[in-house]
Amino acid sequence: MMRFNSLKTPLVQGINLTKIFRYGLIWGEPVEAVKNVNINLLRGASLSLTGESGSGKTTLGKILLGIIRPTSGKVLFNGIDLTNPKRVPKYIRRMMSYIPQHPEEAFDPRWRLYDNIAEPLRIHKLIGSKEEEKEIIFKLAEDVSLDTSLLNRRPFEVSGGEIQRAVIASALATNPLFMVCDEPTSMLDISTQADILRLLKNIRDKLNISLLFISHDIEIASFMGFKIAVMLKGRIVEMADVDKLINEPLHPYTQGLLGIVKVEYVSSYAKNCRGCPYYDRCPVKMLPCREKEPKLKNVGGDHYVACFRY
């Protein structure tokens, strides 16, 4: 077991992350999915990423997990470089888990829930006998309040909420330190959503897991995180503690997401812009916004915003 640094140093650190996708074979237009993102996550802390779809939230989450290789920049997990997914030591993988958006996509449809939940344990060979495995799985199912009679069913035979519980159980099987939840409830019913979110929150507090929670709904994001980062076109445009961001949002885009200012939907905007990423929609744009991109800067009390007005 590796030793952990003190609580003050971040568990997960993303330094200057940039990811450029190219669609098409040779002449593909490059698209900046993530651009110059610096992100820190302390042990046991939780951060929510929010922003509209296509803002690069999911890509950033996957880079931090070391599933996608960033074009430039570095990801450090407790000091170990995750930048090249192929070189990540296997024992590191045990300490992180991923909960995808579509619960029905998260499991192999041919496997019973039981085997799907047990899979991380089997991959890492953490259990000795079948009995021990069964005991652990039943305990996990109980932790996420999943009916144990459902364990013998296959994913398409149970409801979305039930699979999502099983996915969480599977994610907890290896006692991870870092968990990325990619919109885990956007496909669920409202009452089930409340249930799952509360479950995730309880688990986070009980097991002291660092949680990166991705959601396009800023209300849900604020429920789950200590801090919120608002993303737009691959950049973080505002980051602050939940209360601060909800009560005094500074960036016009955040104000738009919160419904204070009307945001208009632009279906086809320039993918890679020179100036501020919000320029073409901003109600309070100024002259320099078009030419220069504002940097993310601290405006006091750990409140970061990328806008020329501050």
Partner: peptide
């Protein structure tokens, strides 16, 4: 390209 394969990669498979 299914999500569960990504999840498995993340687990370390």
């Amino acid at each position: 390209s299914r999500e569960y394969v990504k999840r498995l990669k993340c687990i370390g498979a």
